[in-house]
Amino acid sequence: MRASFWNKAIAWKEWRQHKGKFWGFGVILSITPIINPVFLFIIKAVDKPHVNPDPIFNDPAAWSGSIAAMLNSPSNSSMGIFAVLVALGLGALAVAQERSENTLEFLVATPLSRREIAGTKFLVGAGGLVCIMFVNFLFITALALILPADYTIAEAFGWFVRETAVLLALFGLGFLAAVVTGNLVASLLGALAVAFSPYYIAVILCELLQTLGIIPREYAAYDMLMNIGRYMTLPQYISDYQNFVSHAALLVPALLLAALALFFLAAALFERNPLERGGQLLVFGDTKRIIAAVSSLFVAALVTIAVGNRSSNLTLILVFLGVCLLAAGIAALVRK
């Protein structure tokens, strides 16, 4: 009852605060599916309609070609990288804007629970995203009903479900990043890094494990690790869309589950957020220590891979640990 994730007042406020963003982002996403065809129709209608009264309406490819291409592979349309950034940005901004304007203090001091705040913010943002996608889907469906088109309604529906699932997961990631970080820039960068980096982390990890002789390339574990990295890299679903389509029956529920999991994780973390470090990169833990640890691990991995082929495995493990310690030591010195 009280443990609610929804509050009407916050929803009203969120809408009032972010409606400009929803409209703006909506326009960006709909460039390919809505604005482009509408623009074409207008031009054709104005451009000597008496002399040349036709072809666009009779030739499906003339107006629906780009939409069909988008449904097949969104990465070259406004539903590609733009959509990825918009989803991440909407998620991050929902919390981070309040942090950068310091209004979160005002909000949490009202008789609202933190769960309501986090929950409603998530739901309004995710709802806005779904709405934008749904409007686009409705529009291209309506066009396909009225005019002969290069795509089917079923194709449009499949695309809508799949792309929305990816964007929701990305939105959740952005949202979580903003809950964990202390300010707007950090949360946007963090969201981008978390969204794009799993694949590269997997590459480095596999390379390191192979160099150390723990997992040679021939092992199944190697491919498994690489695949995990690939599956966790959400923008991959857009750039490698065809592959995604063939496994969609499994992956769409998985993505929706991921979005849900991110939602609960973000809400739980927000409830425990001490909210005291407005200017810091990370709200939980000591930012500098975490950066030092991550960067020294990174440096050690690279050095080990580089020295790799010339030495025995045991030496390499020692090299790895040595560089780890060295880098951590340097980082600690720099801190002081």
Partner: peptide, 23 residues
């Protein structure tokens, strides 16, 4: 208090008012 219920009957004036600037 996690529910926020306690704040229903409390009037609070913060040292600096951080309200939504565009409202």
């Amino acid at each position: 208090d996690t529910t926020g219920e306690v704040r229903q009957e409390i009037g609070y004036v913060a040292d600096t008012q951080q309200m939504y600037p565009h409202f």
